[in-house]
């Protein structure tokens, strides 16, 4: 058990190193001069030179790599070109809204999606199942921002129930927080709910065809307990996996949702960086988001040992 956890923790290292190499290579291996591209069409030679030295592009490539990894290990994500502030500081400043939005979304999505998926699997082939699955496909297909704008149009502009823009911290204004987070949460949850519902249904359906479900019925067990005691517990591993993998979708969606609702989080930071051509910020955020994703998925893998006694290598 302990050795499994140790090994699982250590196994994230190669993946993190690969991510770091990909991010490093992205800037250095693209054709043409990245400094020129980043600086944009109207840049002066002086600006280009400044970007080149900021990113360390003027050094030999192996020196660049060693320096870069060294800085990374110390938590140094570089200096923003536009504001001249450390990227790590900028990220820390913008962390709270994104974290809050992600947490509310994950909770809301799981609470909605898992029961929906189980229900669809249990009633598989019926109209209940079909309606749930149609909603799931809709959720996959609706671009986050289109849903966001539809919600703003309806509940913000027409009915005027909820604020359409901005973010309030739960620590200073709990009521404002709840009112401001409702629409972004629903918007961001859509695709996540679609994904988790679909996988939950598929996993439960697969488990329901297993021999031990037949055994449970042969014992005279009632359907509800067959479903929850026997089926759901066995389906927990794939469901937890998809919740973890879905984090990647969530991060992408958060960037867009924050733009639609004008929430000053990490997503806005990305978008501002795109507009200002502030590459170090983009690079830093890619690393932070990827490492978060890797760590969350590692934690989920470790959590499997509680669902499934067989996983104890």
């Amino acid at each position: 058990m302990v050795s499994f956890i140790v090994r699982r923790v250590l196994s994230t290292l190669p993946v993190m190193i690969i991510v770091a190499i990909v991010v490093f290579a992205m800037l250095r291996l693209t054709p043409g001069d990245p400094a020129v591209v980043i600086a944009g069409d109207q840049a002066t030679a002086e600006q280009i030179a400044r970007i080149r030295s900021n990113l360390g592009l003027d050094l030999p490539i192996h020196v660049q790599f060693v320096t870069w990894i060294g800085q990374l290990l110390q938590g140094d994500l570089g200096i923003s070109i536009f504001t001249n502030m450390p990227v790590s500081t900028l990220i820390a400043q913008r962390l709270e809204p994104t974290l809050m939005l992600s947490l509310t979304t994950i909770c809301f999505s799981v609470l909605v999606a898992v029961p929906l998926g189980v229900w669809a699997a249990w009633r598989s082939g019926t109209w209940t199942d079909r309606v749930i699955m149609v909603f799931s496909v809709l959720g996959f297909s609706f671009p986050v921002f289109v849903l966001g704008y539809l919600l703003i149009y309806e509940f913000g502009l027409t009915l005027k129930w909820l604020p359409t823009q901005g973010y309030k911290s739960p620590f200073s204004d709990p009521v404002g927080f709840v009112r401001s987070i409702i629409m972004p949460t629903i918007t961001l949850s859509m695709i996540y709910i679609a994904l988790v519902t679909r996988i939950t249904r598929a996993s439960v359906l697969e488990v329901l065809s297993e021999d031990y479900i037949r055994t449970a019925r042969a014992k005279g067990q009632i359907e509800r307990k067959v479903l929850f005691r026997h089926a759901l517990k066995n389906a927990a591993v794939p469901i937890a996996t998809i919740i973890g993998i879905g984090i990647a979708l969530l991060i992408g969606g958060a960037v867009v949702t924050e733009t639609v609702f004008n929430i000053p989080g990490l997503g806005r930071l990305v978008v501002d960086a795109i507009l200002r051509r502030d590459y170090p910020i983009i690079q830093g955020l890619i690393l932070v988001f990827s490492f978060t994703y890797i760590i969350i998925n590692m934690l989920i893998d470790i959590a499997y040992t509680f669902f499934d006694p067989r996983i104890r290598y």
């Binding site: 690969i18 990647a248 990827s290």
Partner: peptide
């Protein structure tokens, strides 16, 4: 590694 980087 590639899969750990959110696609967008």
């Amino acid at each position: 590694g590639l899969m750990s980087i959110p696609g967008i």
